[in-house]
Structure formats: structure tokens, C-alpha cells
Nucleic acid binder design. Sequence first.
DNA 1: ATTATATTTTAGACTAGCCTAAATTTTATT
DNA 2: AATAAAATTTAGGCTAGTCTAAAATATAAT
Lengths: 228, 228
Amino acid sequence: MQSFTEENYIKAIYKLIEANGNTVSTNSIAEKMNTKAASVTDMLKKLYTKKLINYKKYQGVTLTTKGEKTALNIIRKHRLWEMFLVEKLDFKWDEVHDVAEQLEHIDSDKLIEQIDKFLNYPKVDPHGDPIPDAKGKLNVTKSQVLSKFNKNDVCVMTGVVDHSPSFLQYLDKSGINLGIEIQIKDVVLFDRSLQITINKNTAIFISNEVAKNILVIKKNYKKNSLKV
Amino acid sequence: MQSFTEENYIKAIYKLIEANGNTVSTNSIAEKMNTKAASVTDMLKKLYTKKLINYKKYQGVTLTTKGEKTALNIIRKHRLWEMFLVEKLDFKWDEVHDVAEQLEHIDSDKLIEQIDKFLNYPKVDPHGDPIPDAKGKLNVTKSQVLSKFNKNDVCVMTGVVDHSPSFLQYLDKSGINLGIEIQIKDVVLFDRSLQITINKNTAIFISNEVAKNILVIKKNYKKNSLKV
DNA sequence: ATTATATTTTAGACTAGCCTAAATTTTATT
DNA sequence: AATAAAATTTAGGCTAGTCTAAAATATAAT
Ligand SMILES: [Mn+2]
Ligand SMILES: [Mn+2]
Ligand SMILES: [Mn+2]
Ligand SMILES: [Mn+2]
């Protein structure tokens, strides 16, 4: 069994690898964990003796199979709890993160399996992030950021990059939620800001910065897909 | 804000006072917390500086108003979580305690108020223990142990004294649950074991030790009560 | 009223996690 | 290739919470 602190380090390492590929540096962990590099080095030694990470001095860090399984289990719990809070307790998607940061450390297999069942085995969390299954299997998402698409493209929103409350609240206020259909009506060349419609309603403007934080899947990509 | 450890000490002190009256000794806290007296003394100094307990060297301990409020809030959370586990996640009453010991430390007012609402504001937990309200108000229970009653008395079961899984499982197996009507058919003078009926069914025997751990309220005590 | 026993506190030490400052190693730049 | 800069690790120290052993105090027994 790991301490809360160890679990948070493992999750941080997992997310850094997911975001930036292969190995991860001491400094980047320190930044993500809001600690100092010296503290990270101490913890890396400990995680190494517990066989959770591969670590050689000055060489950066990767997760072992055991470490990755551990990380995915924490992420599974985090996302299921977020889903529970939104679906059952009327939390907004910008309110769940801090509570889930605590709940993800509760140690009870039965609890998390029952929560999963209670929610009817959801595939994604309130932010569109995939929920690993009990064996640690994670569906890879093929979403892309909205800013990559062009005039007249039609997409469905599937997630967000930035998870901050302020960004999520801005999306709420703008009527931008998971599942909406977004059509790009115009792209301003100067700053790549977008004019879009949501579910074919009146158009709104969003900045390129916003578009870079909205994940979508392009609609009607396959010729033989259903046109509704 | 308190650490998990501090919260557990405060709850232990509250329960010892509740069980044994007025002040509580260093040794009794050590026993309940599975620590040594020296560790308790250290913690008492800390809780005193935080104004959570009244403490003078060698004189025993009581809770301040602030300490009692803290204790009741932790107990509120513990019991609401137990209720949630039983009512919504199909846990048995003997399975909830260890998980609730973890969940009671989750820090979120909104979470616990929403859980309360989700459960429709229950008054007692799965073991019949009263749930303090958000202001820390606790309904005093007038239940008594079944062993105090006599032949032909009719009671309703309202709670348990012993909360151990083995005792709770024994009760399950014997059909003894909260809300059942218990009639004392016979009392064996030699060992004060009881022959009882449950909801007027065929009689079973229980030991005095078991009867001392079952809480009940006597039925039809008032002459003008409803006879169903 | 002394003495003996039990309880509680203090003293000193340990681990987990964190820090700053200094030393080491790697990487980048001339 | 030599040097400068950046990244990382080590050294030493701090707090929370724990322990054992010893000292102090309170309680019980003569
Ligand atoms: Mn989150
Ligand atoms: Mn999420
Ligand atoms: Mn309990
Ligand atoms: Mn209970």
C-alpha cells in the first residue's frame, strides 16, 4: 500500500509521461507537485526501492508496469468519483476536481466497483476523459483540438485540455458543453480566432487560445457514416 | 484545519467521554488509538494549543466547545457515509465501518450536505446511531439494552452496542435487524439467557452477552399508545 | 504517614516528507 | 575542447507523529 503522497507522485509522473512522452525530469515533477527538486529526488529513491519507477541518477524516470497499474487505478478512482459527484450529487464540472483529489485515495476495491456499477459503468468522466477499467485498460481517445480544424468543418465536442474552473465556467457561460455540435463558420487569419455555431444556433466568437483547449472529433469523416 | 490524526484523536476523546463520563485519561486514549501513552501526551499538548481540549498535566482531558463541534462533525460524516454505503451501494452493515473511517476525513462541506440530501436527511445510521445535523445537534437516544427487560416485555430494536463485524454478522444470521419487534418469552435465571420471538415468529435463544449488546425501546409503554 | 504501585510526562530517537544551500553531473555555448 | 549554465543530487535540518526508557506525579496499600 502507498501513502497519499506516494500516490500523488505516481499520478504526476504518469500524467507527465502521457503529456510529454518517454522519460520525465526531476524538475518537471517538482513543478507539477509544487515541491522542490531535492524533495523529488528523495521520493524517486523511495519509489524506486518499491519498484514503482525505473530510475537511474540524472537519467530521468519512467513508470514500471506496477507503477503504471497503480497510476491508472488512481486515475480510475478520480474520474469515477468526479462522475459520481456530477451525476448523483449535482456538482458542476468545475467543482469536482478538488474533492476528487481527496476521494481518489480512499482504499476499498468494493467501494469503487460499486460506484462504477451505481453509475452504470461510464466510459468517460465529466470532462470527457476516459475512465480506465478495473484491469487498468484505458481507451485511447482520437480527439483533436478544435484549433486544428478549418472553415466549414463540423465537429462534436468530446473533452477539454485545460481543466481549470475558470475555463470550465467560461465554457458553461458560452453554452459549450460535451456533446455539442460545433461548426466552424469562419477563421480569422490574423489571430486564428473562430466564429462557430453550437448545435446550429447563432454564431459566437472564440479565441484561438480557447479553441486550443477544446477537444473534438470531426463529424462525417467517413463517406458511409450516418447523416442525421 | 486538522490532520487525519488529530481528527481521530478528537473523535476518540469524544467517544470515551460519551461512554465513561466527564474526563478521560491518557491511558484510555492510548488504548483506543492503539498508540502509547507518550504519544498521546504529545498530541494532547498540540490539541490544547489548538484550543480543542481542556488539559492540565496529570488531570485528564475534556473537549472544548470547539473540540466537541469538531468531533460531532466527524461523526456526522462517518454516519452519513455509512448510510450512503448501505442505502446506495449495497454494503452490509458489517462492511461499512473501515471505509467510513477513511471517508469521514474528506474535507468538503458541499459534499456532505449533498450526501445528506441524496439520502433524504436520515436520522440514524445503519447501526441505529443518531446522525448529528449540520449544526452539530445530536438526538439523544432513550434506548436501553435488551438484557434489562423481563419476561413478556415487547420491544423494538433500535441499535447495537458492539459494532464488530462478527457480532453484526451473527445478528444477521439470527434474523435480528433494526426495527424488528422482540418479545421476551422466557428468561433463564441461571445465566440470564433469553428466549425471544422476532416479529412474532418461532422463538430463538440468545445469550445474556448478546442481549447486553442489543439496544431496544419498550413497546406500549404509554397506556394511550396505538396498538397495531 | 510511609511505602509501593500505577499513571503520566519527559527525554531522546526514529521515519516520512519537506526545505535550503552546496556539491556534482549533464547539457549548452563558445 | 574548454567553459558556462542548467539540472540534479547530496548534506544537513525541520515538523508531525511515533516509539522506548527513565523521571515525575498521583493513587493505593500498608
Ligand atoms: Mn479532476
Ligand atoms: Mn476529470
Ligand atoms: Mn462505524
Ligand atoms: Mn455506525
